[in-house]
Design a protein around this nucleic acid. Sequence first.
DNA 1: AGGACGCTGACGGCTAGCTTACAATTCTGT
DNA 2: ACAGAATTGTAAGCTAGCCGTCAGCGTCCT
Lengths: 220, 220
Amino acid sequence: MTVLLVEDDRLLTETLVGALELEGHRVRHLADGVEACAALDAPDHGHALILLDLNLPGCSGLEVLETLRRHDNDTPVLILTARGAVEDRVRGLDLGADDYLAKPFALDELEARIRALLRRRERHQVLQVGSLRFDGLAQRFSLADAPLSLPPREQRLLACLMHHAGEPVDKARLAEEAFQGEPMGDNAIEVYVHRLRKRLGDDGVALRTVRGIGYLLEAT
Amino acid sequence: MTVLLVEDDRLLTETLVGALELEGHRVRHLADGVEACAALDAPDHGHALILLDLNLPGCSGLEVLETLRRHDNDTPVLILTARGAVEDRVRGLDLGADDYLAKPFALDELEARIRALLRRRERHQVLQVGSLRFDGLAQRFSLADAPLSLPPREQRLLACLMHHAGEPVDKARLAEEAFQGEPMGDNAIEVYVHRLRKRLGDDGVALRTVRGIGYLLEAT
DNA sequence: AGGACGCTGACGGCTAGCTTACAATTCTGT
DNA sequence: ACAGAATTGTAAGCTAGCCGTCAGCGTCCT
């Protein structure tokens, strides 16, 4: 899962992207409020955390946040705001932001808050479908109580399917959530699904294809 | 199912009622907050959707909404509010409204939101006719407790028929709702109905034809 | 009877999805 | 740094089964 950074200051953006990637996060960046609203329009957009500047071109960060919460999306949001803009901060928290940080801030401080938010989130993330389990904290899978090691892309794909276990997920969505817009061949998803199926075998969990719709993970 | 419109502006009301009925909705209208509270007092008031103006005589729309949710009623609510009344809007969403629209708005926009809300609702609904069930979330059918896998067009056709179970649906409507204006032979619906009948067999549900009118799905 | 409407089975084009193979890239251990 | 292994992206062929159409037949109404 990636971190979404919504920030228009170019210098700060570069600093943050660098620092976050060094910490091992994958980062997606948007500089415009309208763009951000659009990107967050899908019910599940595949971000683990959103860093949100309130002072944006296009539409304000508060509107972005409002849009997000209106979609019943509870992705943790950390607000970045100018020191002294108390009012905005308060409104942000009212709208369901999870934390805030006043600029300028120390990078260490930011990283600590991010870790805290992600930990809080992931602790809830032990998913199970049939005999397949996913430990969100350790980012590891096990199948029939045996650890299952997967290459990164297959991990992300499977995690995404587990998140939506029991309901079909269409390919476009899988591509977006698991591979975050990285360019890819038109049958890449199919190939990965094929590889995943080989690994999963027939051990109490099935990756069914729903023709014309997408794929669906379910217990057997 | 009907749409309930709670709105005191007479002109707007007339426009909306006209537009909604043109879209095929049955509309009930109340102009007063107190009346609305009373009407929504029953746990199931039989409305599919509520369009709620916040600025009402009697008692405010927010109170209506609060009443509604206090009764554990999760009917989708779309708030209509004056542009700029951000605070009310936010409170509305907090109280469990599903969406809002700032006046003045384009009718197209309203209709799009309504469709979205109703669709979202349907997606989480489980329909049942005789021994035939449709799980809206998983987009899957089961017949006599056995999973029934259908090709996409047949799925859409059957879903549409189940949605109007017990009442006849004419072919033009089926074509429109299930196939969304895609071009098709004049015989296509009949062929699909035929294929569906073969799959459904005689397992407690029948797809009767009402000559000159259309088709009708019912339990046997 | 005659016509309109609906039913049914069959056929062929076509597309979505599956599978395999292979080259490019990245990872890993020495 | 190097070789070998694993992962990744792409292409190509294959298949099942969906989709649309048609022609022929049955059924209902007047």
